[in-house]
Write a protein that binds this DNA or RNA. Structure first.
Lengths: 257, 257
DNA sequence: CGGTCTCTTGAGCAGAGTCAATGAACGTGG
DNA sequence: CCACGTTCATTGACTCTGCTCAAGAGACCG
């Protein structure tokens, strides 16, 4: 079993991605009470309609957020990768509005809600880091809407492949050209709002054209620029490039008080 | 010109919708430095790629968030109604990832970013209220993805009509059965990921069946239950019913620290 | 009174869905 | 080690929902 520090480290790492976390903040995070568990693929970590009982992040493995329509159709609304908070919304909302399921075997760190909430509200640097995390998530949701609402099948799939590539790279998983994508084509279809059959055809086309190669559940991007252009992809919405900063006050703006 | 208090009051009202704001918090909000302006329909309030220069909320009027694809297609990702923050994300992100345009003539209150940020980070009750606001927005984005990704045209449109109905009612605009919907059919199409022509046909069908009536830009819901069922609508995701609260600590959960 | 926007409606088309069959990969237990 | 079952990927043939193109009708405004 890894040390206590090692378990919370991915959280610190994620927050530090877009914010400055000093030693004191770091210590406060590492002092959080938490528990750790390992779960099987397809385990429900959160169910729509249930009161959340914890606030967790993914230490390892993948998960996805999902909602079902009354017709039984499923829409995947986001993919969570190691280091992501799984249910930040549980911090302040008392009923879950969607389901969260693991994609793979995963280790989850559950943090005591009151302690985390206090940290968020009382320690500005941590509060800011969590705010940024939540705001970036919202930005990804917006782009997801555009993807599903206004792009054709080929573009949609190329786009989501680009998104995964960059997010995984930012998380330190996979390099430029290759990454694990532990989703079935059916799940991919539910993520982009298509049918599995059609996803299959599009993936085949992308392979045939030499933009990507596939083996098992991993994707190798052969022609990044072309995939990016086919996918109408612009990474701005991921807010990866320090675009979240404290020199904000330097912008010309409104009265300051 | 209304009093200073009257101008910030919609913000207090919105926050108080789902949180408890005491007198001291209220006073702190009313002490914020701000400016107020009135803008024409279709004015850009935020542009993708630009550094945000303010943090504002809609005092009156309607607006929408929007992104464009390289093909020139537009996807509307949310509608903002009076009392909504229009760029909470500007509080902590330094580049805007989408456009925000007014739908109607609107009055906007711009708040000084540093002062607001300080308030959010240092006054727990206000921080919590803003968190809830942001988390509910994210929930609405998720439902929007489901709507656009997995529902057919008829269901999509019925769903969005239900959403507007409830949100406007919660904001104190319009009653159960009638509300202003100041959108063209083209804008509605961009919101649900369809073409204006098809939106027109579906609206006509819904009218013909007696579920709604339309006149100019207002909608009258004649058969709420039926519209709700056609639209596969469940209001949970709006988190309107006190489901955001502080008795949260009462839930059985994880270690507390 | 003409111009511009928006709404309506029709006719034909096509991108993606449905249905269905086959094949590959993998785990399990005999 | 192999037969079997299950899950996932692949491919073809056909269908249909929603799109495109196009034209006409209101409404509003300078």
């Amino acid at each position: 079993m890894p040390s206590k520090e090692a378990m919370l480290a991915p959280m610190v790492r994620k927050l530090a991605l877009r914010s400055i976390i000093d030693e004191e903040d770091r210590a406060a995070i590492l002092a959080l009470p938490f528990a750790r568990r390992t779960v099987d693929p397809s385990t429900y970590l959160v169910r729509e309609g249930e009161p959340p009982s914890r606030c967790s992040f993914l230490e390892s493995g993948y998960a996805y957020r999902q909602k079902l329509t009354s017709e039984g159709a499923r829409q995947i609304v986001s993919i969570q990768i190691p280091g992501d908070f799984i249910d930040l919304q549980n911090l302040f909302l008392s009923v879950s509005d969607h389901n969260l399921q693991t994609l793979t075997r995963a280790t989850v760190v559950d943090i005591a809600v009151p302690a985390l909430r206090e940290l968020v509200l009382k320690r500005p640097a941590i509060g800011r880091a969590m705010w940024i995390d939540a705001l970036v998530d919202a930005s990804i949701f917006r782009e997801w809407i555009v993807n599903v609402g206004r792009r054709d099948a080929r573009t949609r799939i190329a786009h989501i492949l680009c998104e995964f590539s960059l997010r995984l790279k930012a998380a330190g998983l996979g390099d430029d050209s290759r990454y694990e994508l532990p989703m079935t084509q059916e799940q991919l279809a539910d993520a982009v709002g298509l049918t599995p059959v059609h996803v299959n055809r599009v993936l085949k086309a992308l392979s045939d054209e030499g933009l990507i190669t596939r083996e098992k559940r991993s994707i190798c991007v052969k022609q990044w620029d072309k995939l990016r252009s086919v996918g109408d992809f612009s990474e701005r919405y991921l807010h990866l490039r320090g675009g979240t900063m404290g020199d904000y006050d330097a912008f010309p703006g409104m009265p300051r008080g």
